[in-house]
Design a binder for these strands. Structure first.
Length: 475
RNA sequence: CGGGGCGUAGCUCAGCUUGGCUAGAGCACAUGGUUUGGGACCAUGGGGUCGGAGGUUCAAAUCCUCUCGCCCCGACCA
């Protein structure tokens, strides 16, 4: 295909080609930043709309905190500072003068939000606080990639406050489930829910959970995180409330987020060597109709049918008629394929005569002829099938590339060869984890939440272990 | 921060080794015409401080010095 590097030739290049050929984003003049173009942004809007609805259904409200955070606020929480210090963008001047105190461009908003929550929380009656914000954040990164890791990115961050650890834990898991649902039920990305190891958890959190997805190069992509912050931030920022007995207690908190990285996950989960592939629920355009004609008379008849189709199916789906006269049909086919539009409808003189249309599904690239009378139903069924097929295909790919491994030799061989996820017993010792990373580059992506109580012996040191961990090379 | 690659038209690049007339090609763009079931063709046209600064020279895209930036691979990270 013109313009797109094949996955097997150069996976990174393929990824970049998909983005540029689908016109989703481009590099900005500032290193590591990106311009998200309308087609890419439309996908983000879809993700945002889905999550925003689910957040509200689970009782959350949106608010907004400022971009700038006083440096001293960030410094309050030791682990937090340590985690973010190398990634901070610092503002030293404003209005032409040196500032009395440096401002940090938010890398995440725990510091500013918690210091404000301290004023808002007085009584158990104020709890829970269930807030979320949609924002941009900046983390200075050494190496960046469009969507997957950019210096500035868009995300949402939920920040909640609760009256007990149990309630915070429940919230943490509830939002993790929201993320799983968004990934699987809408983005058709099959994920593993799991607990992060100590070394991989969010700096300052009690526990971090994540959803992990396997990309087509068999590497893991952390696609969403949910943290039980315990009382760590409450103690530092002094968020205290009076309980029913009148005693002061530190509050329990959570935070959770997903970012534009999800778009990277979407790209790498489904796309092929012809371009982007989008599940219908993520597609900015569901159906593109391409009229095929020789004469102007033909065109007028064909356009009439196209408009009728758009009118019928447009009630539920986003339909585009590509009636440009400057491109030949073939060129249009390629263009919309590269953009991952799930269904293409071709209407030409032959179809008109037979009272049919040609349907082409992007995911399998198969054609079928369908009667105009039943077209609406056929398209709807096809869209649902594409959505389902993509998820199943993605799940199957991960399952086929996930291996239960119980000796370290096999483990090493895996990461010297084909790669994939390795499900192994792990004793819980961070030193084993570190050694494994050093020797194989694979890290613990998560301790999967289903069946993690299984007993065994540690893949590295051979001591008894209670948990299974998913290892993989990660983005 | 290390290794590699690269900055020439909107994009991909040629030209540089061996300095020399008006800096080129393909794609894209604009106009007109012919086309249209898998990336059309013809004609005409617009578009460049050759990344930047300095130097050598009669003469620099080309040689020298410095500098800025980007991409890829690693260490670090969502």
């Amino acid at each position: 295909m013109k313009g797109i590097t094949k996955r097997k030739d150069d996976y990174s290049k393929w990824y970049n080609d998909i983005i540029s050929q689908a016109d989703m984003a481009e590099h900005s003049p500032v290193k590591g930043c990106m311009v998200i173009k309308p087609y890419g942004y439309a996908i983000w809007e879809n993700i945002r709309n889905i999550l925003d609805k689910m957040f509200k259904e689970t009782g959350h409200e949106n608010l907004y905190f400022p971009l700038f955070i006083p440096e001293s606020f960030i410094r309050k929480e030791a682990d937090h500072v340590e985690g973010f210090a190398p990634h901070l963008a610092v503002v030293t001047h404003g209005g032409g003068k040196k500032l009395e105190e440096n401002l940090i461009v938010r890398p995440t908003s725990e510091a500013i939000i918690c210091s404000t929550y301290a004023k808002w929380v007085k009584s158990y009656r104020d709890l829970p606080l269930l807030y979320n914000q949609w924002a941009n954040v900046v983390r200075w990164e050494m190496r960046t990639r469009l969507f997957l890791r950019t210096t500035e990115f868009l995300w949402q961050e939920g920040h909640t406050v609760h009256g007990s650890c149990e309630e915070a834990e429940e919230e943490t898991l509830k939002m993790l489930e929201v993320y799983r649902s968004c990934a699987e039920d809408y983005m058709a990305i099959s994920v593993i829910k799991g607990l992060k190891s100590e070394s991989e958890k969010f700096a300052g959190a009690l526990r971090t959970y994540s959803i992990e997805a396997m990309m087509q190069d068999k590497k893991a992509l952390q696609s969403g995180t949910s943290h039980n912050l315990g009382q760590n931030f409450a103690k530092v920022f002094n968020i205290q409330y009076q309980n029913k007995q009148g005693h002061l207690e530190y509050a329990w908190q959570t935070s959770w987020g997903v970012s534009t990285r999800l778009i990277g996950a979407l790209i790498m989960s489904h796309s092929d060597d012809m371009g982007l592939v989008l599940p219908p629920k993520m597609a900015p355009i569901h159906i593109v109709i391409i009229p095929i004609y020789k004469t102007l008379e033909e065109l007028s008849d064909i356009m009439e049918v196209c408009r009728k189709i758009k009118e019928d199916i447009g009630i539920k789906y986003i339909v585009k008629i590509d009636d440009r006269d400057t491109e030949k049909p073939g060129a249009k086919f390629f263009e919309w394929e590269k953009k991952g539009v799930p269904i293409r409808v071709e209407v030409g003189p032959k179809d008109l005569k037979a009272k049919e249309a040609v349907l082409v599904r992007r995911d399998l690239n198969t054609k079928s002829r369908v009667s105009l009378e039943t077209l609406t139903v056929s398209i709807e069924e096809l869209l649902m099938d594409i959505q389902k097929t993509l998820l199943e295909k993605h799940r199957k790919f991960r399952e086929e590339n996930t291996f239960s491994i119980d000796n370290y030799g096999d483990f090493k061989n895996l990461y010297e060869g084909e790669e994939g996820f390795a499900l192994c017993s792990w004793c819980g010792n961070p030193e084993c984890e570190a050694k494994i990373q050093e020797e194989t580059k694979a890290t613990i992506r998560a301790l999967p939440m289903d069946g993690r109580e299984e007993a065994g012996v540690c893949i590295y040191c051979g001591k008894t272990s209670k948990v299974k961990a998913i290892f993989a090379k990660a983005y």
